[in-house]
């Protein structure tokens, strides 16, 4: 391997590593990780996240350089005039990141939010789908 290409590969690797590091948030409030299921079908990856308290318009899904980032913000106004007397869970925004493989067609990602559950469908690129070769 040429020194130049080696250098390039290295910087690309560093670039990816940098993305793994969490950005500092400027939005007030605590952020939590939503519980997530990831399943794979023949032609897509399906990501399901629990985000109770998040409305449709407050979800942000973005893909940047193979990093899928999901952010959901809750509305804390119903809690303003209340006094907690017994608590079992923390109230806060949600954020989580995943590195997706390059086999994902980032243009065709679909997202929907129903009853606090975010469904993401990440279709695989056609060439990444397994091809069955018939033996004659």
């Amino acid at each position: 391997m040429k020194a130049e290409t080696k250098e390039m590969a290295k910087s690309k690797e560093q670039d990816l590593q940098k993305q793994e590091v969490k950005d500092e948030k400027t939005v007030a409030g605590r952020f939590y990780q939503p519980l997530t299921d990831i399943v794979e079908s023949n032609n897509a990856l399906i990501v399901t996240m629990d985000m109770p308290g998040v409305a449709k318009e407050n979800v942000n899904v973005k893909v940047e350089k193979n990093v899928l980032e999901v952010e959901g913000q809750i509305d804390s106004s119903p809690y303003l005039d209340t006094k907690p007397i017994y608590t079992e869970y923390n109230v806060g925004h949600y954020t989580r990141r995943f590195t997706v493989s390059s086999e994902i067609d980032t243009e065709k990602i679909e997202a929907s939010l129903d009853d606090g559950v975010l469904h993401l469908t990440l279709p695989k690129k056609p060439e990444a789908e397994p091809r069955r070769i018939s033996v004659s």
């Binding site: 939590y32 005039d81 006094k83 907690p84 007397i85 079992e88 869970y89 923390n90």
Partner: peptide
């Protein structure tokens, strides 16, 4: 990092409002 622990389901919060 999660909002709730792994204990009971569903987790609840109880608030006092007036």
């Amino acid at each position: 990092m999660n909002t709730s622990g792994r204990g009971v389901f569903p987790t609840i919060n109880l608030f006092e409002q007036e």
